[in-house]
Computed example of a mutant assay.
Amino acid sequence: MPTETRSARVLFVTFDAGGNFPPVIALGREIASRGHRVTVLGHQQQREKVEAAGLSFVAYTDPPPWSSAQHHGMLSAILGYLKMFTTDALVDDAVSAAADQDVVVVDCMLLPVMSALTGRDVPVVALFHTFFAYLDGSFRRAIGMVSRVRGLGVRKTWRATDLRLVVSDRALDPAGGRASDPRLVWSGPAEPAARPHVPQQLPVVLASLSTTDFPGQQQTLQNILDAAADMPIRLVLTTGPAVDPGSLHPPANAEVHGFIPHRDILPTCSAVVGHGGHSTAAQALAHGLPMVVIPMHPLLDQPMVGKAVAASGAAIVLPKKASPDSIAVALTRILEDPSYTAAATVIAERLADGRGTARAADAILDQLR
């Protein structure tokens, strides 16, 4: 447990990349609930969620234009992310915002910001929002050449921070078995505690793909709806901001929403269809729910998350272009074969209490000087 005895000022430096943001809100709320002052520096479009959580918000003054909810082609998305990860445009805002803080938590993908803040008077925590194996693997290799041209070695930048904090389940993370490093810590997912199961007459299935817009996502959502049409289930599908709910055609046993808090629907569910996003997968598994995972982007963490959950026995992974028939077969299998739910229940025993958020907050506040 942290030994802090005074109110501290904690700054989170983030950006709008979809799945990297929920842990910031969860950790910010937890730290604020302990009597500390939390400020988030991010994109202007993140202000509403930050302030709704009771946290202070500061917007970047001149960031590269970017929104995770806007449509991007494959190439433009990759180039946009590379620019965001290596831009100097966020550095001055971060240095200014950090000037009066006691601890700064920086998204691990914002390399120039981390480099600029490390070595100053304030301790810096690098926040890893998904599997370390992905961020230290595919992600690091993808931006390695660009970052080296900028004089930023990825591992060197991370290791210069005071703490590398991975808000993921160490047992699922393929990197979780690495040799112990006291400055590399897995806290568990920064997600709320699972709510008690509420039995339903028909099995309820939650389907949710990314809040980030990816090519082909609308068709995949429609395929999921078509798969459910002849199944004895009730399907609840959420689109997020990336897809207009009105553009989809649900069968009689399905409902489509732009947004429903997943934690409100998961206690009624028997299974989840997702894209392998870390947050959705962690919440589903915390409730002991088996999954059909349909990754939306081959270069992001989604395929690795899906593979890890499938290796645990709790999921089936399908390609993005899977037909409605293929989705229906996979969904029927995880609903009828009890081994999938049993495997998810084993993981739920680690995650259901939601203690990952508290452990991550402890680790951050332990950096107080």
Score class of each variant (00 low, 15 high):
Phe21Gly: 03
Lys307Trp: 06
Asp100Tyr: 10
Phe12Gly: 05
Pro261Tyr: 04
Val317Ser: 13
Arg155Gln: 15
Ala328Tyr: 09
Ala286Cys: 08
Gly137Thr: 07
Gln45Ile: 15
Gly313Met: 10
Gly119Leu: 12
Asp88Arg: 14
Gly119Phe: 10
Leu184His: 04
Arg369His: 13
Ser56Ile: 00
Gly216Ile: 09
Ser180Tyr: 15
Val124Leu: 07
Ala252Met: 08
Ser56Tyr: 06
Ala193Tyr: 03
Pro174Trp: 05
Leu351Arg: 03
Leu266Pro: 03
Leu266Trp: 00
Gln45Lys: 09
Arg29Phe: 00
Val149Arg: 14
Lys49Cys: 06
Arg37Asp: 13
Thr332Ala: 14
Gln222Asn: 12
Gln222Thr: 12
Val122Gly: 04
Val91Ala: 08
Asp62Asn: 15
Thr87Asp: 13
Thr5Glu: 09
His36Pro: 02
Ile364His: 02
Gly80Val: 10
Pro182Arg: 12
Thr3Val: 06
Gly240Val: 09
Ala271Lys: 07
Pro203Arg: 10
Thr280Asp: 05
Leu184Phe: 09
Thr238Ile: 12
Asp88Thr: 13
His275Arg: 05
Ala229Asp: 10
Arg150Phe: 10
Pro232His: 11
Thr61Ala: 13
Pro196Leu: 10
Tyr81Glu: 06
Pro251Tyr: 05
Thr5Leu: 11
Phe132Gln: 03
Asp264His: 08
Ser187Glu: 03
Leu235Arg: 02
Glu4Phe: 03
Pro303Asn: 07
Leu90His: 13
Ser138Thr: 15
Val50Asp: 02
Ala8His: 02
Asp337Trp: 04
Gly276Ala: 07
Val293Gly: 05
Leu152Ala: 07
Ile25Cys: 04
Lys320Leu: 14
Pro64Val: 12
Leu110Cys: 12
Gln201Pro: 08
Arg34Asp: 00
Thr118Ala: 15
Val273Tyr: 02
Gln222Lys: 11
Leu365Glu: 01
Asp121Ala: 15
Leu365Gly: 00
Ala179Phe: 04
Cys269Phe: 04
Pro196Tyr: 09
Gly176Leu: 11
Val317Cys: 11
Met74Gln: 13
Asp162Ser: 14
Gln283Pro: 02
Gly188His: 10
